[in-house]
Design a protein around this nucleic acid. Structure first.
Length: 647
RNA sequence: GGCCCGUUCGUCUAGCGGUUCAGGACAUCUCCCUUUCACGGAGAAGAUCACGGGUUCGAAUCCCGUACGGGUCACCA
């Protein structure tokens, strides 16, 4: 996959013993100036080996290659990649084992391919591609790990969707894990809601909770609910404790709050339990050993905190954002194990991802600030870290900020996939499903909030999304949601449905809305009239209550405008004329036109009157089509009623 | 406030150093079709690529700074 990808992109295949890529811009410039612009790459070696026609020089010697021995393989491999890098990214990548592995894999294929190595970004893409390759012998496993604190909102669904698409695209597994380590925030029904919402969307977990839409553990790593995994975490906290990467802290929540309060009034709005302040707190770092032992033995409450290194740069490569770097000076000694023996998200998430063999952590951007802590935890445990991808946020259409659960229906559109009845307030937050959205439309719309296939195609089924999806095409910036476009997506999916399915949906809709039973032939005919003006099936149903009952009233404004003293006689003439014909759309219309021709009346003088009589309104599809649907007897009765009502 | 992330038409976005004084979609407007309303078709308008420097023969694209926006700073996730 990698090789194909690389070649397709117009990358150059080399067969030199060494591939030397030099990001020295002066060298690149020389090539460019020599007029080799067609594939002008600023990749360069010191002994051009016949590829200069393509503006790429590959060498078997020189400084760049010496770098190979020094930086990459220490000469062990005989072949390697030399990158004379100006950017820290390159060196960083080179230093990683993953990269070496990738290079060896490429050797095995006897092909080495390089894109133009521009400074920075391009290099990042090479390595992203290489990583896919190195990971290829390992099954991709991703997870969606919501906390059951209420209904899942659309941002959460999108995160689940991207995880799912990523996994399915690469033939991997998608797991659903419930992160309920905060027992105080437990909301009844939330877990069921999450499972139902994903099931409705067609995002089916391969493992974990919610497989086949069932709330049950399913898979080799059960249980998948963190509260059920509680006993497992202790040992990992102990491991960190033993290694000196964590410590016991006995400060009570009240004491901590008091300190924060004091700090705030002293002008420090953000007191942190960190490498500096921990020295004056009550913990196993400051207290004498015997006292710590005594407190523990006495069953005194404590938490386990991570011992954050003092001044260290933590770097990791985010699949969407590139290299992210944070100094531990800015990180605090986060609680790992809480007073109730439950792990915090940070510990649980890292341990579970490891245990469940998660290869890629794809989650919302709100987790970016704590990602360095997670990276550090992997390091402390001595585990290989998964790849990270932090998704851009979904922004509210009004004002600023991320779309949140609290936004409810305030914004004029649903923020939840399904209706949610709040047990406490008794209020119901509306969902896309109940609003009339198809899961296909909803999912399609969600997929395009922050991602784009790079083509002009916008309408995708879930399976097509899987095929087209690439995490590298996920946009970096937050996406403001637009309900108008969401409706358009649904409309497109509405039109893609088969006539049979639509007819069945129409029948169901009519039964629900009007208590009327219609056969599928009627439904098909009605749909041919009303589907064009619908974004949702409910539009098609609601557009024509008059198909199921005589108009209760007539549009007053239009009556005023169109109904004249002659209207009744015109209608009677038409009824007589139609009495002799078949009651089908085209015949009715032809007869109507003949009537106009004979009387010299304009369409505008009689047409609206017919509409009024039949439908009570002057808007809608061909009135003759509606009449055909209604049938002769019904239409004649309606016309009579209109005449007697309106005169 | 500290730290981190981001910034292309009103909105979602394409764009990965040169065929782009920036392409598509939604929304808006106009015309055609339809003597209704839609659908459909054609077209218009809409972005000095946040701003300022720099690198380069050449920058929306690379680098730096500024501004603005967002996220995050709990024994929440």
């Amino acid at each position: 996959m990698l090789l194909e990808h690389v070649v397709v992109k117009g990358f150059v295949v080399a067969r030199a013993d060494f591939v030397a890529v030099d990001v020295d811009l002066n060298a690149a410039r020389a090539v460019l100036h020599a007029g080799k612009r067609r594939f002008a790459h600023d990749a360069f070696g010191h002994e051009p080996a016949g590829y200069a026609d393509f503006g790429v020089a590959l060498g078997v010697g020189g400084e760049a290659v010496q770098n190979v021995g020094r930086v990459v393989g220490h000469g062990h491999f005989g072949r390697g990649v030399g990158i004379h890098a100006q950017s820290a990214e390159f060196t960083q990548c080179l230093a990683s084992k993953k990269f070496l592995f990738a290079e060896l894999a490429l050797h095995a294929a006897k092909i080495r391919a390089w894109p133009r190595a521009g400074a920075g970004d391009c290099g990042r893409r090479i390595f992203a591609a290489l990583k896919d390759f190195t990971m290829s012998d390992r099954r991709v496993r991703v997870r969606f790990a919501p906390s059951p604190t209420g209904p899942l909102h659309m941002g959460g669904v999108r995160t689940a969707l991207y995880n799912y698409l990523f996994a399915k695209k690469l033939g991997g597994d998608f797991l659903l894990r419930i992160e309920d380590t905060d027992q105080t925030r437990f909301v009844p029904g939330a877990e069921q809601y999450i499972v139902d919402a994903l099931a409705w969307c067609g995002i089916s977990p391969d493992e974990g909770i919610g497989v086949n839409g069932q709330i049950a553990d399913h898979g080799p790593h059960a249980p998948y609910r963190q509260s059920d995994r509680k006993p497992m975490y202790r040992a990992y906290a102990d491991q960190l404790l033993a290694a000196g990467h964590a410590y016991y802290a006995f400060d009570t929540p009240e004491e901590l709050e008091a300190i924060r309060e004091r700090a705030k009034s002293a002008g420090n709005p953000n007191w942190q339990y960190n490498s500096i302040t921990r020295t004056s707190m009550k913990n196993s770092l400051t207290l004498p050993e015997d006292e710590v032992a005594r407190r523990l033995a006495a069953g005194e409450a404590y938490v386990v905190r991570v011992k954050m290194p003092r001044n260290e740069e933590v770097k990791f490569e985010d699949r969407i954002r590139g290299w992210v770097s944070v100094n531990t000076l800015n990180l605090d000694d986060k609680v790992l194990l809480k007073g109730d023996g439950m792990p915090t998200y940070h510990l649980a998430n890292v341990v579970d991802d490891r245990l469940m063999e998660i290869t890629h952590v794809i989650r919302g951007e709100e987790w970016l600030p704590s990602a360095p802590l997670h990276v550090l935890l992997y390091r402390f445990f001595g585990w290989e870290q998964p790849e990270f991808a932090h998704l851009p946020l979904l922004l509210r259409p009004d004002g600023n900020g991320k779309l949140s659960k609290r936004d409810g229906d305030r914004l004029g559109f649903p923020v939840f996939p399904l209706n949610w009845a709040n047990a406490e307030t008794g209020e119901t937050a509306s969902g896309y499903r109940e609003r009339g959205f198809y899961p296909e439309g909803f999912v399609n719309m969600l997929a395009f909030l922050g991602w784009n296939p790079g083509t002009n195609q916008e309408i995708f089924s879930l399976d097509e999304l899987v095929q087209a999806f690439s995490i590298d095409k996920v946009h970096k910036a937050g996406a403001r949601f637009d309900f108008e476009k969401a409706k358009w997506f649904n409309q497109q999916h509405l039109r893609q449905r088969s006539p049979e399915v639509l007819a069945a949906e129409y029948q169901a809709g009519v039964a629900e809305a009007f208590g009327a039973a219609v056969d599928s032939a009627f439904a098909t005919r009605a749909l041919s009239l009303f589907l064009d003006r619908a974004e949702f099936m409910s539009d098609a149903v609601q557009a024509a209550p008059y198909l199921f009952a005589k108009p209760a009233e007539y549009d007053a404004a239009m009556v005023e405008k169109k109904w004249t003293a002659d209207s009744a006689s015109h209608l009677r003439s038409l009824v007589r004329r139609w009495a002799a014909t078949n009651y089908t759309e085209s015949v009715l219309e032809d007869a109507f036109k003949a009537f106009l021709a004979e009387t010299g009346l304009g369409f505008g003088a009689v047409g609206p009157v017919v509409r009024l009589a039949i439908a009570g309104t002057t808007q809608g599809p061909s009135i003759f089509g509606v009449m055909e649907l209604l049938g002769r007897a019904e239409c004649e009765a309606r016309i009579e009623k209109a005449i007697s009502t309106l005169g």
